[in-house]
Design a protein around this nucleic acid. Structure first.
Length: 270
DNA sequence: CCGACAACCTGACGGC
DNA sequence: TGCCGTCAGGTTGTCG
C-alpha cells in the first residue's frame, strides 16, 4: 500500500508518539526484511532520543540525537502499528518509548527495509542518490518535467513511476494523476505537450494532497482499531475499476505494462 | 534507452 | 470446505 501519501501519513502518525521521546527499548523479532537490519540496530537506538521525523520519496526518516537517522521503507505491505494491544505475526520490530508508548513495524511480505545512516550525510544514502524532485516540492515543475522527458520514447506512465524523474509516485497515484490530467498512460513521454505537462503537474499535486488529507483524518483519531497507520480509502477514479463506467460515458480499461496493471479511460485520456 | 521478465515474500480472493 | 491460480500499492537486476 505505501506510496508517498501513505508514508507521509505514517510519519505524521508516528511523530506525536516518538518525537522528543527517548527510546527505552528495541526488540528485533526478526532480523531482516528485504535486507538484514543493521547488526547493532538495537544498541544504536536504545537510549537515543528522537529529534525529528521526516520523509523523502517513499522513505520515512527518524532522526536521533546520536547523529543517526533510521531510514525505513514499507515495501508493499509494511505499516507501523501504534500501541497495539498485542503483537501480531510479522511485527518484526518493536520500539518502546520512555513514556511507555509502543510502535511496531509490521511487514508480511518483507519487501521493506530498515537502515541507519548519518543524518548529516543522508544525501549519500544509496537509494537517495539520483532521486528526482519531491512531487509536492518546488522543484517539480512543468519545465523540469519537460526537460527530463525530452526525447524519451518510454510511456508517460513508466516515467512517472521512475523515481529518478519524480520521487514518490507509485502505481495507484500515477494512474490516477494521468486520468485527472486526461493523458493516455501509453503516450510516449517525450510527445506530451508542455501545456499538458503543466496539467499533469497540477494533477499530481491534487491527487497526492487529497490522499494525504484523507489519511490525515484517520491518523488524528487513530481510527483504525489496532492503531495501524497509513490505512485509508480515498476515492479512486480508475484504479481497480476495470470494466466500470467512467464519468465521461466511456469504460475503464486495464492493460499490463512492466508487470503492473494500468487502468485508464480511452475516451477521456488521449 | 527500452520493454519484458524474474526475484524477493505472504496473504487475500475467486473459481471450481 | 479445500485446493489452485492469480493478483497485490516496490525495488533491483538481467537480458535481448
Amino acid at each position: 500500500m505505501p506510496e508517498l501519501p501513505e508514508v507521509e501519513t505514517t510519519v505524521r502518525g508516528l511523530r506525536p508518539v516518538l518525537e522528543g521521546q527517548r527510546i527505552a527499548g528495541v526488540q528485533v523479532r526478526r532480523p531482516d526484511l528485504r535486507r538484514a537490519f543493521p547488526e547493532d540496530l538495537g544498541q544504536r537506538l536504545t537510549g537515543a532520543t528522537v529529534t525529528a521525523l521526516g520523509r523523502r520519496a517513499k522513505y520515512g526518516l527518524i532522526d536521533t540525537d546520536r547523529g543517526d537517522t533510521m531510514v525505513f521503507h514499507l515495501g508493499m505491505s509494511g505499516h507501523w502499528r501504534v500501541d497495539p494491544a498485542e503483537l501480531k505475526p510479522h511485527d518484526h520490530l518493536v520500539i518502546e518509548t520512555g513514556a511507555g508508548r509502543r510502535v511496531t513495524l509490521n511487514d508480511a511480505r518483507r519487501f521493506g527495509s530498515v537502515e541507519l545512516w548519518p543524518t548529516d550525510a543522508l544525501a549519500d544514502y544509496p537509494p537517495f542518490v539520483g532521486l528526482g524532485p519531491e512531487p509536492l516540492g518546488p522543484e517539480f515543475t512543468a519545465d523540469g518535467l519537460a526537460a527530463a522527458l525530452k526525447g524519451r520514447s518510454a510511456s508517460i506512465k513508466t516515467m512517472l513511476l521512475d523515481q529518478r524523474i519524480v520521487a514518490g509516485l507509485g502505481n495507484i497515484y500515477a494512474v490516477e494523476a494521468l486520468y485527472e490530467a486526461g493523458i493516455s498512460p501509453r503516450r510516449a513521454a517525450g510527445t506530451v505537450s508542455r501545456k499538458r505537462l503543466a496539467r499533469l503537474v497540477e494533477a499530481v499535486h491534487h491527487v497526492l494532497e487529497a490522499a494525504i488529507a484523507a489519511g490525515g483524518s484517520t491518523v488524528r483519531s487513530y481510527a483504525s482499531p489496532d492503531g495501524e497507520l497509513g490505512h485509508f480509502a480515498m476515492q479512486l477514479h480508475v484504479y481497480g475499476r476495470e470494466g466500470e463506467p467512467c464519468e465521461c460515458g466511456g469504460t475503464v480499461k486495464r492493460y499490463v505494462e512492466g508487470g503492473r496493471s494500468t487502468f485508464w479511460c480511452p475516451r477521456c485520456q488521449r
